[in-house]
Simulated assay, not measured.
Amino acid sequence: MTAAQAQFQLDQPSVADGAAIWRIARDSKVLDLNSSYSYLLWCRDFAATSAVARDETGEVAGFVTGYIRPDRPDTLVVWQIAVDDTHRGHGLAGELLDGLITKVAAGRQVTTVETTITPDNAASQALFLSFARRHAAGVERQVLFDAGLFPDDGHLSEELYRIGPIAPAA
Results as ranks from 00 to 15, higher is better:
1 M>P: 02
1 M>W: 03
2 T>G: 11
6 A>Q: 15
12 Q>N: 00
14 S>G: 03
14 S>R: 09
16 A>P: 00
18 G>W: 01
20 A>G: 04
20 A>I: 00
21 I>V: 12
22 W>M: 00
28 S>Q: 11
31 L>G: 05
33 L>Y: 06
36 S>A: 12
41 L>G: 03
43 C>E: 03
44 R>H: 11
47 A>N: 06
49 T>N: 10
54 R>M: 02
56 E>Q: 12
57 T>Y: 01
57 T>P: 01
58 G>Q: 03
58 G>L: 01
61 A>L: 08
63 F>N: 09
69 R>I: 02
70 P>G: 09
71 D>I: 01
72 R>E: 13
73 P>Y: 02
77 V>I: 08
78 V>I: 15
81 I>V: 15
81 I>C: 14
82 A>L: 05
88 R>V: 08
88 R>S: 11
98 D>E: 12
99 G>M: 05
100 L>V: 03
102 T>M: 00
104 V>E: 05
106 A>M: 00
107 G>M: 00
109 Q>T: 04
110 V>F: 01
110 V>I: 14
111 T>M: 00
111 T>L: 04
111 T>Q: 07
112 T>L: 01
114 E>N: 10
117 I>C: 07
119 P>Q: 05
121 N>A: 10
126 A>N: 13
128 F>T: 01
129 L>A: 12
132 A>Q: 07
134 R>G: 05
135 H>G: 11
136 A>Q: 15
139 V>Q: 09
140 E>D: 13
141 R>C: 09
142 Q>I: 00
147 A>Q: 15
149 L>I: 13
149 L>F: 14
150 F>I: 11
153 D>L: 12
154 G>R: 12
155 H>C: 12
156 L>E: 15
157 S>T: 14
157 S>G: 14
160 L>A: 08
160 L>Q: 05
164 G>F: 06
165 P>T: 05
166 I>N: 01
168 P>C: 01
